[in-house]
Amino acid sequence: MTRFKKLLLTILISVSPLFAQVKGGITVPYIDFPMKEGKGMYSTKGKCNMCHSWGYTLNQGLQSKKFWQEKVMKMILIFKAPIEDKHIDEVVNYLFENYGNGELE
């Protein structure tokens, strides 16, 4: 092999592009997780689902009022969810009435 060819081959190897096994990226499917009908559903839907799917919420399981209260506060304080103070009770009550275990704590 001539020096030139060798050089060319070296260049080709070193700049050979990497290919992902997926061409042009992926599309994550939308999955519908229906919410239970109840007072405060639309308000809760707007506040929770703007950041994550309803599946993430409902798959926490049926929980106590204290649990839902703490979750909502965690979303506000730690994850900076823009939920105004006056709406906190509405969201917590919707969650507890529809995804509660009947226990206050």
Binding site: G55, Y56, N59
Partner: peptide, 14 residues
């Protein structure tokens, strides 16, 4: 989901 066979699905986002 992409590059997956159907699995038990808890959420799509994340």
């Amino acid at each position: 989901f992409p590059e997956k066979r159907p699995l038990i699905t808890y959420s799509d986002r994340p």
